[in-house]
Design a protein around this nucleic acid. Structure first.
Lengths: 202, 202
DNA sequence: TGATAAAATCTAGCAACGCTATAATAGATG
DNA sequence: CATCTATTATAGCGTTGCTAGATTTTATCA
């Protein structure tokens, strides 16, 4: 009897807990979605806690319950961004089976950065406490780099080094383009030259 | 007689105007100097107009008379930074007469970024209204790129394209290192590989 | 030199920000 | 239905970038 009651209790509480968890995740997603939309349209300076609280029709403390701080929201979005970039790179790599995988990945990376400049910006805005390659780095962050690493795995000794350099070049192009330091006009030729550099000699 | 008076007048006013101009430039330098110091020690978030006004012992509106806005201060520092980077690259290039100029410039660039991370950060923080290569771009911004361009001028057709790619790679390494995305441990090998990529084939 | 015009500077305050202590409300429990 | 807990809102603190208007300092000229 005691057993039965406990079971009933557990089921009820778990159902309620599940619903609460769902609501919580839904609100979390709403916040992030609103923040990303505002950032892309009006820049990160306009992503204020007050503005977000209005967008989701909750008071400010609710946001702080979810993310702890404004920076916490940006950090969550950055992680999400790295996850999406990783997936995009994986797709590009697999799509190019047989063809030039480097070329495919370069295109996908720059396409990602150009399509969501605010997202790309926030991915490199916050100073990480711990370097990327560390063990306790979120999996989303490791996954993207793993796609780049894969490119040079068989091809070259010290593939990691080449992958780092490759990433740096990609990021450099993306960042200088985003901040208007490089004109977008010659982008195609830049891509071609970059692919050239990283395909033949490895 | 009238002539004499006018001359005296002009001399006086010009002397006064000169002194005022000197004072103005001195205060401008003070503001920038304080901002750079605070930024390197405590980050740009701590570079507030109030804080700066205390540092130079003037009220806030004085700062606005000089720079128009907080962002104006950062922009002025960014331009100054590009000027200094350009000079550092020029020195590196001339120093390496005969030797490997690419290697020398790579070292100088990364050294600059690592030595003044806050300065390097602000140089790429603000969205430019107009791309770098434009005619009305401040000379400080053009000068630095000119040093990179020089490297490939004879060596390759489309030197501009190679220089852009070279800059992107350098910036990528500097930026990913600054934001802790790349571990500083393998930096030497990365530099070696980068030099390799940009010396032989051009 | 001393009044007057002009330039330089400060005081004080606005609106908006990130964040939080505390009050109010809604929901689950027995 | 009463009580207890978790959720949400109100209201406010300290700080920010920025500016209108008062005030002081400096230059001009009889």
């Amino acid at each position: 009897m005691l057993f039965f009651i406990l079971v009933v209790d557990d089921v009820t509480t778990s159902r309620i807990a599940e619903r609460k968890e769902r609501d919580k995740q839904a609100r979390r997603a709403q916040i992030i979605s609103a923040a990303r939309r505002i950032a892309e349209l009006e820049g990160w300076a306009n992503v204020t806690v007050r503005r977000l609280s209005e967008e989701i029709s909750y008071s400010q403390p609710v946001l702080y319950a979810h993310f702890g701080s404004r920076e916490g929201i940006l950090a969550a979005i950055a992680v999400e961004g790295f996850g999406e970039l990783g997936i995009a790179l994986e797709k590009a790599r697999k799509r190019a089976k047989g063809g030039n995988a480097v070329e495919s990945i370069v295109a996908a990376y720059l396409q990602f950065a150009a399509a969501s400049p605010a997202l790309y910006e926030v991915m490199f805005l916050l100073n990480l406490s711990v370097p990327f390659g560390q063990a306790d780095t979120p999996p989303e962050l490791r996954f993207g780099f793993a796609q780049l690493l894969e490119l040079f795995q068989g091809q070259s000794a010290r593939a990691e080094l080449v992958a780092e350099l490759f990433w740096a070049s990609l990021h450099g192009i993306a960042d200088l383009t985003r901040t208007k330091r490089l004109p977008p006009s010659r982008q195609k030729e830049r891509v071609k030259k970059l692919v050239e550099l990283f395909t033949f000699p490895g």
